[in-house]
Design a protein around this nucleic acid. Structure first.
Lengths: 197, 197
DNA sequence: TAAAAGTCTTAAACTAGTTCATTTTTTTTC
DNA sequence: GAAAAAAAATGAACTAGTTTAAGACTTTTA
């Protein structure tokens, strides 16, 4: 069958781990909600009860918290083919501490909590899909959880550039500083130093 | 049925997320290997191909990497009722970068890669168990991945003490420094400062 | 149970990263 | 396309955390 671009993208993402029949694909797609967010608008703000988990089909968003001083700490940039959301709030129905804001006009597919639970009943293979998706994410978060304490800011910047060469050019230096965990001023210094090398 | 202590512990851990029949419990337990490690000995060293994932039934172990300067970065302390291992190496069969060393005489249950795959065929419910286990771990690693860059060393120490009050007293200050991501000297200063407050 | 090895404390000199203030450059908005 | 707003660059004074070194205390080992 012929699917629209965004649907092909999410089906391919899922096909990395499990095979679905045509019927299952259609069932799955019917459980998704299409969402558009214009640049600078929020998909989620601290205090919200998270209703969806998101798959990004177009654009770029930043996921961040604010500390007591109001400084943003960016935990990820989500671009095409990425999953984003606040799993803790999604699971527990407690208010989220996260903001998710579009840094470009973006398009997403959302799955609601009810449909997320439903999917495991309707297509049990999805337990396997999510088991493998989470297993992979876990590996990269375990690695990343050591970055902040074992690498200098310059090393973290170089690692980010190497791992996400396409994202570097789509975000501001200020947001990158918020991800690396330093001030924009020091980020500026590091970048000019690394470029000089 | 009556199980030995270590088996009761792991069955209870699993029962948090899925229900197993007597037969399934026995099948599952038959796939596990009992392992003993004496204090200071290694369960895993960098370069090894990880053969098992572990569940700790007694004792305490530290999981760490060494940086280029030979300084240890501890990623977790694993005590009773915890899962440990190097999932990346376990999955990809590439050599691990981790060391796992017992800080007390310890007892573990190990599941081999072959049996891990087998279990999903024999008892598909385990997809759900691992999906939920990983989902939970992910939530805490996502949170922790921001700790290193958004909290000061003193704040990280206070957070650790609050989250793991029982572990603090079982490990050396030096190992705690390796977890917090600072030198043992600065750890000493922080502890005496926090205790004075 | 004595010696050796490892852990903890303290302090002084140092470095990575912050803060604050100002100017230049780029992007957004009407 | 001009004005306003936001981002980036630069520099000087500051602070959190490191390094090195030495002595006191604790644990391990023979």
């Amino acid at each position: 069958m012929n699917y629209k671009e965004s649907h092909t993208l999410i089906l391919n993402n899922i096909a990395r781990f499990i095979d679905l029949t045509e019927l299952e694909k259609q069932k799955y797609l019917s459980l998704l909600t299409e969402i558009e967010v214009k640049k600078k608008t929020f998909l989620m703000q601290a205090g919200d009860i998270t209703k969806y988990e998101y798959f990004i089909t177009k654009g770029c968003l930043k996921v961040y918290t604010l500390d007591e001083d109001g400084a943003p700490h960016i935990s990820m940039f989500a671009v095409e083919d990425y999953w984003a959301g606040d799993m803790a709030s999604f699971m527990t129905k407690e208010p989220t501490r996260y903001f998710i804001q579009a840094t470009e006009d973006s398009e997403l597919l959302g799955i609601s909590r009810a449909n997320y639970e439903l999917i495991f009943q309707e297509i049990p293979k999805f337990e396997r899909f999510y088991r493998m998706l989470y297993q992979r994410s876990l590996v990269s978060y375990i690695r990343r959880s050591n970055y902040g304490i074992s690498l200098t800011a310059e090393e973290r910047y170089i690692a980010f550039k190497k791992k996400y060469p396409k994202i570097v050019n789509r975000i501001t230096q200020k947001d990158l500083a918020g991800y690396i965990g330093i001030t924009p001023e020091f980020m500026s210094k590091i970048i000019s130093k690394v470029n000089r090398m």
